[in-house]
Computed example of a mutant assay.
Amino acid sequence: MVAIMKKAKPDLRATIAGAKIVQEKDATWKKLCMMQRLRKRLKRRKIQKENEAILRAAIDDATITSSVSVPKTLAEALPDDAQKKNNDPRAIVVTEATGSFNMIGCNKAWENLCGFAECEIIGKDSSILQGPDTNVDGLRDAVSRLFDGEQKVNVVTTNYRKDGSKFTNFLTLAPLRDDATGKMTHFVAILNDIGESIARKTSQV
């Protein structure tokens, strides 16, 4: 006769213990995720406060031109008329509003400030102007606020020219919109080198 093997009964205690371990792991994971979100939120608040203090100091400084007129459309930012485009004293560069925010064009004032020719920057992102002292967190926060409110934002950061020299940049970011639909099509960045003004102020203290 062939012996009939009985199925082993599941160990109820082991099943309960296993379920408990899974629940504890899940609870621990959720707690870690919550703590990470809280840390990021606190870090962002700290960055915002620091940026606000720097911005207030720059805006309150009479020697710094912190208020500039901002173009509203792509045609205003980068006119087809080459003379009009290159006679604009504002250092302007325009980026896509999606993806990697690749640059699509700039004017002569931007070329003179940053050292790059327009043909060298098309299709590249603005990280070519970044370096060790760049306020990356502040820039990320500014872009986030730009998306949230879809209106002009400012941030002070350190940028680097093509030759590696750096300058203190009072940066204005704003959306560009389609004339007909009003929808955001691109971003414009207006760079303002405030290094000399800061140096003069520091030497007077």
Rank of each mutant, 00 (worst) to 15 (best):
L12C: 04
A14D: 13
T15W: 02
T15E: 14
I16C: 00
I16A: 11
G18H: 05
G18K: 05
A19Y: 01
V22C: 01
Q23L: 13
E24A: 14
E24L: 09
E24H: 04
D26G: 02
D26E: 12
A27Y: 06
T28P: 00
T28A: 14
K30N: 11
L32K: 01
L32H: 04
M34T: 03
M34Y: 00
Q36C: 06
R37T: 11
L38S: 12
K40W: 11
R41C: 05
K43D: 08
K43T: 11
K43M: 12
R44M: 13
R44P: 00
K46E: 13
I47C: 04
I47A: 04
Q48Y: 11
K49V: 13
N51H: 00
N51E: 15
N51F: 00
E52R: 07
E52I: 01
I54G: 00
I54N: 07
L55F: 00
R56F: 09
A57E: 12
A57R: 12
I59T: 02
D60K: 02
D60T: 10
D61C: 12
S66L: 07
S66P: 00
S67L: 07
S67R: 15
S67V: 14
V68A: 05
V70S: 04
P71L: 01
T73I: 05
E76Q: 15
E76F: 11
E76R: 12
L78C: 08
L78W: 03
L78P: 02
P79R: 13
A82H: 11
Q83I: 12
K85G: 02
P89Y: 04
P89A: 08
P89G: 02
I92C: 04
V93T: 08
V93Q: 06
V94I: 12
V94K: 08
V94N: 02
T95P: 04
E96H: 09
E96P: 00
T98D: 08
T98F: 08
S100A: 14
F101W: 07
M103I: 15
I104Y: 10
E111R: 03
L113I: 04
C114D: 07
C114W: 02
G115N: 08
F116C: 10
A117K: 14
E118D: 13
I121V: 15
I122Q: 10
G123Q: 08
G123M: 12
S126I: 05
S126H: 13
S126P: 03
S126F: 09
S127Q: 14
S127G: 13
D133N: 15
N135L: 08
N135Q: 10
V136M: 14
D137L: 10
D137R: 03
G138W: 10
L139R: 01
R140I: 13
